[in-house]
């Protein structure tokens, strides 16, 4: 077994420097690596380019890095839940690249899979297609998109082991599964770091080879963005 375990979040983020490009897993606030984000907020690391489906909310998730102006550029698909984000974007302080969600996922997956580029119909005929190669396949127009190149991918899983194997829960799998192994170094924070041999190899979602550093997060708030319930009859 090749161990990927690091003891602290501080050790996990070693080497993250100004001007780097970092992937963050999660959808909304679901499945975000909240311990690592909180630690990055404590550092002075800035000018980051962040690849993340969303930008958190004003006081949680990547919203915390935005508040401290540590982010230079966001690459996302939907940013509607964050007023500070919208302010920085409309004022020009923050560079923003909005891309279709499926394209975002596939650009991560391609990086993970060693595929340099691919064609997708998403965004054809819109401003997303501007400057991109267009080709027709099977009578339908497609645009060429490239795999992401990132320095770090930071993902969150439910369970993991010292070998770096990951298991996700529910819809918290989202982009975490596509980003693991999609950057030079992948950091995984897990709710529970279990002894090697405990996880059933049949049930592992991401094999340990995709993860370079793994640690158990100190605490998970797991904030809910839209708490919707129904009444019992």
């Amino acid at each position: 077994m090749i161990s990927k375990k690091v003891n602290t979040v501080q050790e996990a983020i070693q080497g993250i420097k100004n001007d780097m490009t970092i992937m963050f897993g999660g959808f909304g606030l679901c499945g975000i690596p909240e311990n690592t984000i909180a630690e990055l907020v404590k550092t002075e690391t800035s000018n980051l380019t962040c690849i993340s489906n969303n930008a958190g909310v004003d006081d949680f998730g990547l919203g915390l890095l935005l508040q401290k102006k540590q982010i230079k550029k966001m690459i996302s698909s939907y940013v509607g839940e964050n007023a500070e984000f919208e302010r920085q974007m409309l004022s020009g302080e923050l560079d923003v690249e909005l891309i279709p969600q499926g394209t975002l996922a596939e650009r991560c997956r391609s990086a993970q899979a060693g595929i340099p580029a691919f064609f997708t119909p998403a965004g054809y005929g819109t401003e997303v297609a501007e400057g991109k190669e267009v080709r027709e396949f099977n009578g339908k127009m497609h645009i060429m998109e490239h795999a992401f190149k990132a320095d770090f991918a930071i993902v969150k899983a439910w369970k993991g082991d010292e070998a770096g194997n990951l298991v996700f829960k529910g819809t918290a799998r989202n982009f975490n599964s596509c980003m693991a192994g999609a950057a030079k170094i992948t950091i995984a924070e897990v709710e529970e770091l279990v002894p090697v041999g405990t996880l059933d190899p049949n049930q592992i979602h991401i094999p340990g080879i995709m993860v370079q550093r793994i640690f158990q997060g100190e605490k998970f708030e797991k904030r809910i963005e839209q708490r919707t319930v129904r009444q019992r009859n």
């Binding site: 909304g28 989202n174 919707t228 319930v229 129904r230 019992r232």
Partner: peptide, 28 residues
């Protein structure tokens, strides 16, 4: 729901919300 679930059901009963099970509108 495009965030990664097929076979979505109704909203949970009060007290049974799970932060890890949401739809693309970020609703539990």
């Amino acid at each position: 729901s495009e965030n990664g679930v097929l076979g979505m059901g109704p909203f949970p009963f009060k007290g049974e919300e799970d932060a890890d099970i949401i739809n693309a509108g970020k609703q539990t």
